[in-house]
Amino acid sequence: MTDGIYLLLGSNLGDRISNLKQAIKYIWSFSEIVKISSVYETAPWGVTDQPAFYNQVLEIKTATDPKSLLKEILKIEELIGRVRKEKWGARIIDIDILYYGDTKFNEEDLIIPHPGIADRKFTLAPLVELAPDFMHPISGKSNKEMLALLDDQLSVKKLDAQLQ
C-alpha cells in the first residue's frame, strides 16, 4: 500500500456537501482514508462567473497505481454525475490527484504532483491543514512554504463542516 497520496475534492453544483460525501464513500471502496480536511468554501478559479466551490483534501493509502487511481476517480466523477463541458467550469464533482507519495509522473492524461498545487490557495489551504510539512517532490518546498509564498487573493474560507 502506498501512503502519502492526497486527493482534492471540489463541488459547486447541486448539494455540494452531499456530493463530497458521495465521493468519499466511493473512495473508501478502493482505499483507506487516513485523514480528511475541513471543508472550505472557495471562490471559483479560472472561470470566475460560477458558484463558489466546496473543497477538501483527503489523504489516502491504496495499492492502486497512479493510472488505475485516475481511472477509479473518473468512474466516481461519472457515477456522481459529472459532465465535462468547459475547462475550469462548474461541476457537480471534481477529484484531482495532488500527490502520490514522492512519485513524479508525467503523461498526457496525468501529471503528478498536480501542476497547479503551488498556484492555488483553494488547494493549499486544506492541504496545509493535513500535511503542512509534506515536501513537494519537484520544488522541494513544503505545502506550508508554498502557501506562505502564494499571491492568490481569491476567497478561501474554512467551514465548520468536516466530513467523515
Rank of each mutant, 00 (worst) to 15 (best):
T103V: 07
L130V: 01
I60H: 07
L69E: 03
I5L: 09
S155G: 01
T64L: 10
W45P: 02
E77L: 14
E41S: 10
F122L: 09
K61A: 14
H136F: 11
L9H: 06
L130T: 04
L74M: 15
E108L: 10
K141W: 09
K75H: 13
K61T: 13
E72F: 07
L154K: 13
S29Y: 01
L110I: 14
L147C: 12
V39Q: 05
K121H: 09
G101P: 03
A161S: 03
I17L: 15
Y40F: 14
Q164M: 11
G101F: 06
L154M: 05
K75R: 15
Y54G: 05
S68D: 14
I36N: 07
V57P: 10
I117W: 09
G46D: 04
G14T: 07
V156C: 12
E108K: 13
L69S: 09
I92Q: 04
L149I: 00
A118I: 03
E107V: 14
R82D: 11
E107R: 12
Q22C: 02
G101A: 00
D65H: 00
I76T: 12
E59F: 03
A161W: 01
V39Y: 04
L58N: 10
Q50V: 04
F53Y: 14
A43P: 00
F105S: 05
K21Y: 08
E59I: 01
S31C: 02
D152K: 08
Y100P: 07
V34K: 13
S11H: 06
I60N: 03
S155V: 05
S29H: 02
S37R: 02
K67A: 10
I117A: 12
K75Q: 15
K141G: 07
S142A: 08
L149W: 03
G101L: 02
I24S: 08
S139Y: 14
E108T: 12
W88R: 06
G46M: 03
P66I: 01
Q22W: 00
K144Y: 08
W28P: 00
T62I: 03
Q50W: 09
N19M: 14
H114I: 13
D109H: 15
P132Y: 10
I95M: 05
V128A: 03
A43R: 03
K158E: 12
K85R: 10
W28L: 06
N12P: 08
L154W: 03
D49N: 14
I112A: 13
L124C: 08
N143H: 13
E59M: 04
I112D: 13
S37K: 03
D152A: 05
H136T: 14
D109K: 15
T103M: 11
I17E: 13
